[in-house]
């Protein structure tokens, strides 16, 4: 079988599907000061899984507000800098109108993922932390 570290180099999703790979990538991002990119990406996935009807609507609203406040609202943050203004407005409207559908963060997640794939992921594959592990 292919060693895990080699699989991680195949695609971002093969890295993020693996627990050890995710932890190593997060350590790298933390050193680079942008672990929030990965936390946000997983928060979006977690939010989508919290389907309407399961658990309280209040909990989903509270979570949407928490994700928005922590990652999107403050323009200087690593996530906010990579999310387009129109996407931010869309999320803000969802939160303010308290109409939070499971796909509320999908576009923002796509934009952050593109930034990770373009910058952080290639840097990770060349980093000491990855090469030492591999």
């Amino acid at each position: 079988p292919t060693p895990p570290a080699l699989r991680w180099a195949g695609s971002l999703h093969s890295l993020l599907d693996d627990r050890d790979g995710t932890q190593l990538f997060r350590s790298f991002l933390r050193e680079e000061g942008c672990a929030d990119l990965l936390d946000f990406w997983f928060a979006c996935s977690g939010f989508r899984k919290l389907a309407p009807g399961e658990g309280s609507e209040e909990k989903r609203l509270k979570l949407a507000r928490a994700i928005y406040k922590k990652y999107v609202l403050h323009g200087a943050g690593v996530v906010a800098r990579r999310v387009k203004p129109a996407t931010k407005s869309f999320i803000r409207d969802c939160v303010l109108r308290q109409l939070v559908d499971p796909a509320a963060f999908d576009q923002a997640q796509t934009e952050v993922q593109a930034a990770i794939e373009e910058h952080s992921y290639p840097l990770f594959l060349k980093s000491d932390i990855y090469l030492e592990y591999a």
Binding site: D18, F42, A43, G46, K62, L63, A66, K69
Partner: peptide, 20 residues
Amino acid sequence: IDSEDDLLQECISSAMPKKK
């Protein structure tokens, strides 16, 4: 009642891959 931060952490953890 969970604080917003606890809720966020729980959400992130729920989406992370589990140990194989």
